[in-house]
């Protein structure tokens, strides 16, 4: 029960904030941030020697944030494109985290399960206190987003115009990234680094198919995220040895597939019908023209 609530909350938060990432074509930033968080966790542990989730989460957030900042500076200062910058930071930060992790393991004061948890999450171990953390931090992130609603919306849809109005583009960019970092770090424990990117992308992509309005899309994404969270938890608890994180991701993917095919107006089925109707209309029109020519 607690797990389902936690997963639902998480899905809602990441769905909401993922909307921006998808619209800005930065869907894979989540993937990068979640991988880049690993050295942060290791350093937080090395420095404090404690395994309190909050401290480790803080370390993860700092590292993820730093990684994103690196990516943005590489893109700004060199001719290396966004995708390569993302790939380099993602993999090398992760590699550095791995080095630190083996260092910790060698000193022998950490349990071996740490890395697996980081990679795949352990939704089953979500406690009431974790749900509270997700709720509070996620809530704060969403409130901040609502406060800057107008500015962020402009940044997403017309960055040049926003800059010409004198809005601090780089500060807003960093703000948006920081919100994303919060959402990702919250999700690490439940679904893990590898699958966190899907939690950001899938609900937003599904929601995009149903509407052209940002506010509606965000609400839908939150709903889809929560749905996937609950659905995945229920399915994985109904059979033995089905891990929760991947099941949640597959649920979200199913929602995307459903939306892409069936959504009105944009959906594939809808498109097909419209195409056939147009074809029929054209044929009829052509027939009429032909007749009028004969007369």
């Amino acid at each position: 029960m607690i797990v389902a609530i936690g997963a639902a909350l998480l899905g809602a938060v990441s769905g909401t904030l993922g909307t921006y990432a998808v619209l800005r074509r930065q869907s894979l930033l989540g993937d990068a941030i979640s991988h880049a968080a690993l050295p942060g966790i290791a350093i937080a542990f090395l420095l404090t020697g404690s395994k309190t989730p909050l401290i480790l989460v803080l370390g993860a957030a700092v590292a993820g944030w730093l990684g994103t900042l690196f990516i943005l500076s590489i893109v700004r200062l060199t001719r290396i494109k966004y995708d390569s910058a993302l790939g380099i930071i993602l993999s090398t930060f992760f590699g550095f985290g791995l080095v630190l992790h083996t260092l910790i393991q060698r000193t022998g004061n950490a349990n071996q399960a740490g890395l697996d948890t980081f990679l795949f999450g352990q939704a089953a171990t979500i406690l009431e206190s974790d749900v509270l953390t997700i709720g509070i931090l996620g809530g704060i992130a969403i409130v901040i987003m609502l406060v800057f609603w107008k500015e962020l919306k402009l940044l997403v849809f017309d960055e040049g115009f926003a800059a010409s109005l004198g809005l601090p583009i780089r500060a807003l960019d960093i703000l948006l990234t920081s919100l994303l970092v919060i959402a990702i770090v919250l999700g690490l424990q439940a679904v893990g680094a590898v699958l966190m990117s899907a939690m950001l992308v899938a609900p937003a992509v599904a929601a995009r198919q149903w509407t052209d309005k940002l506010s509606v899309m965000m609400l839908l994404a939150a709903g889809f995220g929560a749905l996937a969270g609950v659905g995945g938890t229920i399915i994985s608890s109904s059979a033995s040895r089905i891990p929760t994180g991947p099941t949640i991701v597959l649920c979200a993917t199913v929602v995307v597939g459903f939306s892409i095919v069936l959504a009105p107006n944009r959906g594939l089925l809808w498109n097909r019908l419209r195409y056939q109707r147009n074809k029929r209309n054209l044929k009829m029109l052509g027939g009429q023209l032909f007749q009028s020519e004969e007369q």
């Binding site: 998808v22 074509r25 930065q26 869907s27 894979l28 989540g30 993937d31 990117s197 899907a198 950001l200 992308v201 899938a202 937003a204 992509v205 995009r208 198919q209 993917t253 995307v256 892409i260 944009r266 959906g267 594939l268």
Partner: peptide, 10 residues
């Protein structure tokens, strides 16, 4: 319906 980055991310 889906941009390249989101397609990869899905």
């Amino acid at each position: 319906l889906v941009k390249e980055d989101a397609a990869i991310g899905l």
